[in-house]
Design a protein around this nucleic acid. Sequence first.
DNA 1: CAAAATCTACGTAGTTCTACGTATTGTTTC
DNA 2: GAAACAATACGTAGAACTACGTAGATTTTG
Lengths: 211, 211
Amino acid sequence: MPDSIIIADDHPLILKGLSDFLLEKKYNVLASAKNGREAYTLIKAHTPEIAILDIQMPFLTGLQVAKKCKEDGIETRIIIITFEKSKDVYDQAKSLGIYGYILKEFAIEELEHCISDVMEERSYFSPELLKHLEIKETPNILKTLTVTELKVLHLVAKNNTAKEIGLNLFISDRTVEKHKSNIREKLKLSSNAQSIAIFAKEHESFLAEYT
Amino acid sequence: MPDSIIIADDHPLILKGLSDFLLEKKYNVLASAKNGREAYTLIKAHTPEIAILDIQMPFLTGLQVAKKCKEDGIETRIIIITFEKSKDVYDQAKSLGIYGYILKEFAIEELEHCISDVMEERSYFSPELLKHLEIKETPNILKTLTVTELKVLHLVAKNNTAKEIGLNLFISDRTVEKHKSNIREKLKLSSNAQSIAIFAKEHESFLAEYT
DNA sequence: CAAAATCTACGTAGTTCTACGTATTGTTTC
DNA sequence: GAAACAATACGTAGAACTACGTAGATTTTG
């Protein structure tokens, strides 16, 4: 059964765009709401797996809907979608245990990824938002790696060869190559020699603690 | 004859540290000044190749000294060394044709590099400052590369193999490898397979136009 | 305390990537 | 218009890096 979703936004064009996008992606869009109160009512009636809510809506904001659902013990996972980039709103979303937070201007790019994470009980906060707020959250994908793998990645980012990494960690270079192979498999990286180095550079800021 | 240098700072400890550092590095420190007027007098008397000046000094600021030297037609290349990170000061330095601008907290790391560039008629503005001001200047080191080399670098940053780059640029993969070899030589990168990829990632923002 | 996960390290084989060039053609510079 | 530079491409050789495993020891988890 495809994921069941309810969406809510007070702008009809955005609601339509969102709805069409989700239907195209074969999600099960149960209903749409044009305001917070309607959204809350629909969520209570249908208890969808996911609700994607704007913040600024008549009667109840998306965050207020989330709060009420939490109070009611409704297990629908709330994804907020908004233009809002302020730290205050981010903090409120965090403290309410919001599952997802997407910026409208990146919705098309991020929504599938967000839904996928949320369905697997992981939160997803827009990387663009976090970058804007200068907040660092460890990407989920790094959480699949072991401590030794993260150490290897960190040293690769510093332009060390397998040999040098082996010396650094007091293990053989063949073991380092095995770790790299495992990393490649977990992250589904291409098999060319530099793909791990590129990934490591892209995530370097999360690797600093793994020395 | 080693480069001749005059330094000026109103804090004795900083002046001493700077002087000792330069002497250790075998630079020819002709004189030190504790204020702007003294600095200006010494520069006029000695016409050193380089003058390293604090901004905040009694009587004349470092920028005022630079201005007077320019008015006098003195060809001493001024390097500013300061804690100051404001856009205003940066703009003033730029418009005065200051050769170098170093942040005090990074002086040890950057000074040699700065002097080297300045002696070769290139300006050097602290990368930390530019990052802070969110200003992008093409690093000098990229200016040594040809257009094709920059294209190769850009594609490496996008995780392409030599084969893929060859297809992309309609040249053979052996030619791509030759370019990479030339890049490695020019940039003095280590010979391990990933060093070019890492350099490319670090400079990715300057490579976007080379598609 | 057993199962699972992690870490370690090796054998073998193939591919990729590097270094050492040489050499021709086309473009740019002075 | 000659010299310098850039771009192109190849031969040869060795090192590095990947993939395909197997396998035992240690640590973590339930």
